[in-house]
Amino acid sequence: MDDSQTAGSGRTWFVAGMRGIFSLPAMMLMLSFVGFCAFTAQAGIPVEHVVFMVGAVWALPANVILVSSILGGANLLATFIAVTLSSIRLMPMVAALIPEIRTEKTPTWLLLFLSHFVAITAWVFAIERVQAVPRDYRVTFFAGFGVTLVVVNMLLVAVVYQFVTEFPPIVSGCLFFLTPVYFLASIWSSARHPVIYMAMVIGLVAGPFFYWLAPEFDILLAGVGGGTLAWLAERQWRKRGEVRA
């Protein structure tokens, strides 16, 4: 791509990022947030708390775990641990994205601020599209997309909250189901490492198994136990491949 022609101004690239709100991943995410909204409305969480959660936590799995913990009556520490363990994945995601978008001049405080807008959808979108953006404007492009996505979903949740409880049962059932189905499909299709597939399959089995074995720590045990097992298995398999080659 010819930089002199496509560079444009910072505002142009910010707006280009904003336009990502009309992309398919953004649409899927908005529907998932409507589903999340239905979940919280049925559970009786007040709308102002839900809007605050969407803006403050942003990552949907972390939000779901936060609400589940609150409903289960978990205390602050137990909730913090459950949410923080589900969010470890954000660290490698952010770490992988930063070298793609920063320049030598990008201040660290700006990256720290913008990292808040990273979650599965924004990450997949950015990794895919940022290649076509001149390096000087990649941070701007991501800011345009990330900020818009968060603000629009906060407004969406605020508006939709009062209607979701009146949805026909089939609609609210399908919206609830959208969240797990969307995560399954998007994680699987965006995986770039073999270990992701292995961990996904093992985690799906380990989740219910540990729920049956130790319901209080199920997610934690399934993550650390299942993930380590997946990592060991994948490494073993990889090494055998290397020996053969």
Partner: peptide, 10 residues
Amino acid sequence: RAVATALVAA
């Protein structure tokens, strides 16, 4: 990566 993915899968 593996732990994070297994967690979300659970």
